[in-house]
């Protein structure tokens, strides 16, 4: 369709503008490309989420019992101290494992990106993500054999003459398991970010008198901050909603939000209303973290890594 020769005409012809917008050649392509996945998302994500939202607004809803009217009772229940403790614990697990991953992952990523022998670099990176190719359930089970009372760790303690410790079913075990599970993601994202670091800037900083520590804190860290933010948020999101590790390694004392949700739906109480409210809170928290990730994280490293 030919464009109007006078784009700044004082009286725009709305009719032809509308016709142009509605012309099949304008929308047919995008609809054909986005339609199938859009329908998929609508049926399997949007509608279920709205259903959860609806159920969460029916206080005291239990499977097999008549439902009452709408209200915020389920959400108020979350504010009871016992459940607030669960929320706090979930947050602590997520934060703790994020910090552990950052602390353990940064040196590894730095070495891989800037110091490892170049011909081996790709192979070393692949070696590092190898654990991701096995099931997370399997990896969590592996940790139970390491951490159980007569497990690998305590055997090692015995050899070294140290007293046996209780590892399994403690918060420490959950932190170890979560950090182990998500460390490869952190390393990959930091690696992608550090690999792009312009080392000439480090030379320039050295030239201006900065010693190695100053170069690290004033150049390397600020330059890779988007990668650090992306890695932390990604690990945080994954750890916050993780179910397998706290269930297998945490025991009764390590109840977190995802286990609590599981119990509401499949446990003896069948409190679907309360479970739905908890789910909404988790969805909200994760959405918030994703929003932060999109705003502050280095999106290119995230997409590169998740490919």
């Amino acid at each position: 369709m030919a464009e109007s020769p006078l784009p700044s005409s004082p009286a725009p012809d709305w009719g032809s503008h509308l016709a142009q917008t509605l012309a099949p050649q304008r929308w047919l392509g995008p609809v054909a490309m986005l339609g199938p996945s859009g329908l998929w998302l609508f049926l399997l994500l949007v509608i279920p989420t709205l259903l959860i939202l609806e159920i969460s607004l029916v206080p005291g809803l239990r499977l097999g019992q008549p439902a009452g009217g709408y209200g915020l009772g389920n959400y108020l229940q979350i504010l009871e101290p016992v459940y607030l403790r669960v929320m706090g614990r979930s947050l602590a697990f997520a934060l703790g494992s994020t910090l552990l991953c950052l602390g353990l992952g940064f040196p590894v990523a730095y070495w891989l990106a800037l110091m490892s022998p170049k011909p081996w670099r790709n192979l070393l990176v692949v070696a590092f993500i190898l654990p991701l190719w096995t099931s997370s359930l399997l990896r969590a089970y592996a940790w139970t054999t390491i951490l159980r009372p007569s497990g690998v760790l305590n055997t090692l303690f015995g050899v070294l003459g140290l007293p046996s410790q209780t590892w399994l079913n403690t918060p420490t075990a959950v932190l170890i398991g979560l950090a182990y599970s998500f460390l490869p993601y952190m390393v990959l994202i930091l690696y992608a970010s550090l690999e792009k670091l312009d080392t000439r800037l480090l030379e320039a900083a050295a030239d201006l008198g900065a010693n190695p520590q100053q170069r690290f804190w004033k150049i390397t860290v600020p330059q890779t901050l988007p990668g650090i933010a992306a890695g932390c948020l990604l690990v945080f999101i994954a750890a916050l909603g993780d179910f397998v590790v706290p269930t297998l390694l945490g025991g009764a004392s390590s109840m977190n939000i995802s286990r609590l949700i599981y119990n509401q739906f499949l446990g003896p109480t069948r409190a679907w209303g309360f479970g739905s409210a908890l789910s909404m809170v988790l969805i909200l928290a994760v959405s918030l973290a994703i929003a932060l990730l999109l705003k502050y994280g280095d999106r290119s490293t995230v997409t590169e890594t998740s490919q």
């Binding site: 000439r200 320039a204 050295a206 030239d207 201006l208 600020p222």
Partner: peptide, 20 residues
């Protein structure tokens, strides 16, 4: 004596300005 303790300063071909 490492680069950061030498009494010289460099203007780089790529400028190497700190973009942050």
């Amino acid at each position: 004596i490492p680069a950061h303790r030498r009494p010289v300063n460099t203007v780089f071909q790529s400028y190497a300005l700190f973009d942050h």
